[in-house]
């Protein structure tokens, strides 16, 4: 087994509901969905976040979308306008979860493309249709 950061296997989006942040993790490749379900147990995700999540972590699988939804309770310092956090609405908890290292069989790890970062030589101008 190899330890691989989740960002190489999945993308994600997060949002808020009161003091709870949600993170929806989506496998890039449907073939890796079961691997994510196995690795991303509520306990493992709770341990990854540590002090950032005061309450429980709930998990809801969506095999139809090869996605898993996590509810991180007590993650937003009260949430809404109460919170003193820069990320008071949990918008980037998604990327915090994608830092998590998970165990992946060696043969799968060897075949994973490099993914998650803009490639070398990429130009910000391309974001408006310009550049190379």
């Amino acid at each position: 087994m190899a330890m691989i950061p989740l960002v190489r296997l999945a993308h994600a989006r997060s949002g808020d509901k009161g003091d709870t942040a949600n993170v929806g993790v989506i496998a890039y490749d449907a073939a890796h969905y079961d691997l994510l379900v196995e690795a991303l147990t509520p306990e493992a995700v709770k341990a990854h976040f540590g002090e950032l999540v005061k309450g429980e972590v709930e998990r809801f699988p969506l095999p139809n979308l090869h996605a898993i939804n996590f509810l991180l309770h007590g993650a937003l310092d009260g949430g809404g306008t109460q919170s003193l956090m820069n990320d008071a609405q949990g918008k980037v908890f998604s990327t915090a979860l994608l830092r998590m290292e998970i165990a992946v069989p060696d043969e799968i790890a060897a075949q994973l493309p490099e993914r998650g970062w803009a490639p070398d030589g990429w130009s910000a101008e391309s974001y408006t249709g310009g550049g190379a």
Binding site: S14, G15, N22, G24, I26, F60, L62, N69
Partner: peptide, 16 residues
Amino acid sequence: RATVTEQIVYEMGDPT
């Protein structure tokens, strides 16, 4: 599929 899925999981609770 990916851009739509990201929105589907946004602010989701229990999906069922």
